[in-house]
C-alpha cells in the first residue's frame, strides 16, 4: 500500500525534536482523526473503510508514541540509529541503581507497616521527584544533540523505564491496600 514512509513527527507536521508542544500535537491529532476516522466512512465503499482503519490506526500509533516522553525519546533514538537495548541498562550509574533497590525495599515493607498510607505516599513523592529530574535531564540531553548527549539520553531513557516499572509496582501495592 502506498504509505509513504513518513515518520511519526511528519504525520503531525512537527520537527523531530524531543521538545514538542503537547497542545499542538493533541490538536493536530484530533484534526486528523476527524478526517480519517472510519466513522467518517460508515457510508463509504469497503475500500475507503479499509483504508480509513489503516490510516486511523497509524495516526493513533503515532500519537500514542509522541505524547509519552519515554516513548518519544525511544522513537527519536531509533530514528537516529542509537541502539536501545538492555546492555545500556546494565551500565547505569550505581548510585541510581542503589536508590532503586532502596525504594523497592521500602515498597516491600509498606504492606506490613502501621503507617502504610503515609509510607506509600512518601514513596510516590520520591518517584515523582525522580521522574521529574530524569525527564529534565533527558530534555537537556536532547537539546544538546551531539553523540555524547545521545548516549546520555539513552541512559536517561533506561532510568525512566526503571522508574515506570517501580511506579507500576507502587500502584499495585496501593490497589492492594485500598481493596482490603
Amino acid at each position: 500500500m502506498s504509505n509513504p514512509a513518513r515518520n511519526f513527527f511528519e504525520i503531525f507536521d512537527l520537527a523531530p525534536d524531543f521538545a514538542i508542544d503537547l497542545a499542538q500535537l493533541t490538536g493536530r491529532y484530533r484534526e486528523l482523526q476527524r478526517l480519517v476516522h472510519p466513522d467518517k466512512y460508515a457510508h463509504g465503499s469497503d475500500q475507503e473503510r479499509r483504508l480509513a482503519v489503516q490510516m486511523a490506526a497509524n495516526i493513533n500509533d503515532a500519537f500514542r508514541t509522541l505524547k509519552d516522553p519515554v516513548e518519544r525519546a525511544l522513537y527519536l533514538l531509533r530514528l537516529q540509529n542509537v541502539a536501545v537495548d538492555d546492555e545500556s541498562a546494565r551500565r547505569l550509574d550505581p548510585e541510581f541503581l542503589m536508590e532503586q533497590m532502596e525504594l523497592r525495599e521500602a515498597l516491600g515493607e509498606v504492606r506490613g507497616s502501621s503507617y502504610a498510607a503515609q509510607d506509600l505516599s512518601n514513596i510516590f513523592a520520591t518517584i515523582d521527584k525522580l521522574e521529574k529530574q530524569t525527564l529534565g535531564a533527558l530534555a537537556a540531553a536532547f537539546a544538546r544533540d551531539d553523540a555524547a548527549a545521545l548516549r546520555s539520553a539513552n541512559e536517561h531513557v533506561q532510568k525512566l523505564r526503571f522508574i515506570k516499572r517501580l511506579r507500576g509496582e507502587a500502584q499495585e501495592v496501593e490497589e492492594h491496600l485500598t481493596s482490603h
Binding site: 500500500m1 502506498s2 504509505n3 504525520i11 493536530r28 478526517l35
Partner: peptide, 22 residues
C-alpha cells in the same frame, strides 16, 4: 476496480491529511 484504485485512494487520503495540516 478496488484493486485498480487502491493506490489512488491511499494517495488521496494522504494528500487530504497533508492539506489539512499545512
Amino acid at each position: 476496480l478496488d484493486k485498480t484504485t487502491a493506490e489512488f485512494a491511499a494517495r488521496g487520503m494522504n494528500a487530504g491529511i497533508r492539506k489539512a495540516l499545512t
